[in-house]
Amino acid sequence: MKKYFNALNTSVLILFTISLFSLSSCGWKPSEEDIKKLEETKSAALSAEKTLADKKKEVKDLEAKIAAKKKDLEKLKSDKDKVMQSVETAK
C-alpha cells in the first residue's frame, strides 16, 4: 500500500510540474529572431527619419543659397549693363 502511495505521489508530482511548465509557456512569445527583426526595423526607421530631417535641412540651405545667388546674379547683370554703357560712351 505504501509502495503504491509513493508511486502515485511521484506521478502526481511529475504531472504537476509538467502542467506548470505547460501553463507558463502556453502563450505566444517572440523568438530571438523576431526580437532582432523588430529592433533592427526600429533602428533602421529612426536612422531613416534622421537622414530625412538632414536632407530637408540640406534642401532649405540650398534654396537659401540659390535665392542669394539669384540676387547676386541680378545685381551683376545690372552692373554689366552699366559697364557696357560706360565702355560704349568712352568709345
Binding site: L38, T41, E49, T51
Partner: peptide
Amino acid sequence: WQGRLDAG
C-alpha cells in the same frame, strides 16, 4: 516601425 521606415 516598418511603416515609418518605408515613409522615411
